[in-house]
Design a binder for these strands. Structure first.
Lengths: 336, 336
DNA sequence: ATGAAAGCGCTAACAT
DNA sequence: ATGTTAGCGCTTTCAT
């Protein structure tokens, strides 16, 4: 592949002149510019960005490290990140951690070596002090969806607690008094916030606080397995609150396998909506997060940091959520 | 951020010695190694990969350029690519073209400038001679899912024609004789192959070849709009073949809005299954592609090329498909 | 309006 | 076992 010297030689100029043409910077006479341009065409010259990056210490690349791109929620976030990055001349590298701190750490070092300009991180675990690595390297980063140790970092997340609280209150209004919650790992702050929001609603209603809370993973198996357990418990809950979309799917599968109808036999509500693009007939009553917006806002914040235009001090952006009532939940029979 | 010189100075050695320690290459005494390692720790030194890449002309980065990561099919492909790349020490940059040749071309140049080692490309249009750019730059690439002009390139795709043919034959066996096909753009070879497979089955059955084929986009609107059209046509088709998942969703929504039941009033079959992870109760009779496998195989092929271990000459990998019969299709009333 | 030199961080090739 | 030199492709700085 040709380099800037080859182009310069062919055009009969110095490399720096070619550089000026490429970057539209400095004075170049029209005649010279044309000679250079035709040399570029002739050689199909593509400038090597590694050189300038090595000098300028900017790669115009952002790293997006998340749990699993296969989850439609994260896919949508990723698309928001990608679009916003592109609009600003940045590109992104993606890494899936599958919630593993080891994978996360591998990715972070690799991406640091690649000299990405900044990180968008969905932390695999709030226990891992992943922020240390950034702070030591002085690389800007924004935390998405969750919290980590310390409080001196930029973050964007949904109002998990408020959303869970609202959704629970909605169930309570329908007359449900025994609600089972199935959620993710204890070291996931989003899982904790959603349980906290649930408990808050329960307490404010003056109800027995001894509700069933099942801690597992944010996946289908957790939803499936705990639902079977829940169905055996007495007295049986009249509603299940799945704190993410995959859990909700698992819950529904378990209920279906047991021959139970939703909402006639039991109500189900969930966190995270499924994108309209892949849903024929939306069914779940949900707390819907603004996934695309989350990616967009986080990226905007990160880029603002990079160009030193962000407000001073750590920013904490809490996105509002929507409650969407659909057919998976109904008034409890016999309730007022 | 510290560089290799800072580490060397602190450890009292030459930069090259630090390099040897980092890369576990060449002779370094245990004493020196330890001194270097503690210097690395003390400075939290992370090697800058740009230097070596500039020298070696390898970035260990692959580019994945596809239509839209938001489509679960592509998400799954992407995950296959990502996992396989990682296993081999590579990482990936993703770009969404939204089927726009301009976006595609922007991405390609940008990624070329970034010196990616190879491309995995889902071409936005078979008319665009996107391969030229690679061939001129001599960058290895593998084409996924579709065909482009020329025949001297590596590719991995599903047996679209065979799959569509099989699926159509299945419908014919159920007694359907009027089948409407809704498909993507004419310049998309997968769309063409699926229609070709359909026509093949029709011809082999000795049926009227004057079937309804609707060319549109691989999205929900196309499915929705053409379904409304189809429902007005007389004689009305008894089955609809949606040639991708988004179209299928659009078809179902249109049918639902018209108060039609599937499969009682009309049968629906589709290309592309929805991932089990996001489906409560699989409903569509489909041609299921091995999406993860497609990403994996393509990446393996690309990496083999990079290390010069691929077979000589262009490779064309055609992945088998599965027909999965579910509840969206049924025997035509009155058929034998 | 154009060019020469130097250096970004690293390592292959060649000493010692 | 350790070090010196040179150069990957580009652009900033300082001439001319």
């Amino acid at each position: 592949m040709p380099n800037i010297h080859d182009v310069a030689k062919l055009a009969g100029v110095a490399p720096i002149t070619v550089s000026r043409v490429i970057n539209n910077k400095g004075y170049v006479s029209d005649k010279t510019r044309q000679r250079v341009e035709s040399a570029i065409d002739e050689l199909a010259y593509v400038p090597n960005a590694l050189g300038p990056s090595l000098r300028s210490k900017r790669t115009m690349t952002l790293a997006l490290v998340l749990s699993d791109i296969t989850n439609p929620f994260w896919t949508t976030v990723a698309r928001g990140v990608e679009d916003t990055a592109n609009e600003n001349g940045y590109h992104i590298i993606i890494g899936n951690t599958d919630e593993s701190p080891e994978k996360q750490s591998d990715y972070l070092t690799f991406m640091l070596q690649k000299q990405v300009d900044g990180f968008l991180l969905v932390p695999a675990s709030s226990n891992v002090t992943s922020s240390d690595i950034f702070q030591r390297q002085r690389v800007p980063f924004v935390v998405l969806d969750r919290e980590i140790q310390g409080n001196d970092y930029d973050s964007v997340r949904s109002d998990s607690q408020g959303g869970a609280c609202k959704l629970t209150k909605y169930l309570l209004e329908l007359g449900h008094k025994r609600i089972a919650v199935i959620t993710g790992r204890q070291d996931n702050s989003a899982a904790r916030d959603r349980v906290r929001g649930f408990m808050q609603a329960i307490e404010e209603a003056g109800l027995d606080e001894d509700q069933q809370v099942y801690w597992g993973e944010f996946n289908q198996e957790t939803g499936y397995d705990f639902t079977r357990l829940i169905l055996q418990s007495r007295p049986q809950p009249t509603a299940i609150f799945a704190t993410n979309n995959f859990i909700a799917i698992g819950v529904m599968r378990a209920l279906r396998d047991q021959g139970l109808r939703v909402p006639e036999d039991i109500s189900v509500v969930a966190f995270d909506d499924l994108p309209a693009a892949i849903t024929i007939d939306p069914f779940f009553t949900v707390v819907s997060q603004h996934a695309y917006e989350m990616g967009k806002r986080a990226t905007e914040l990160l880029i603002a940091r990079l160009v030193d235009e962000a407000p001073e001090g750590p920013q904490e952006i809490i996105l509002p959520i929507d409650i969407i009532v659909r057919r998976s939940s109904s008034r409890l029979l016999g309730a007022p």
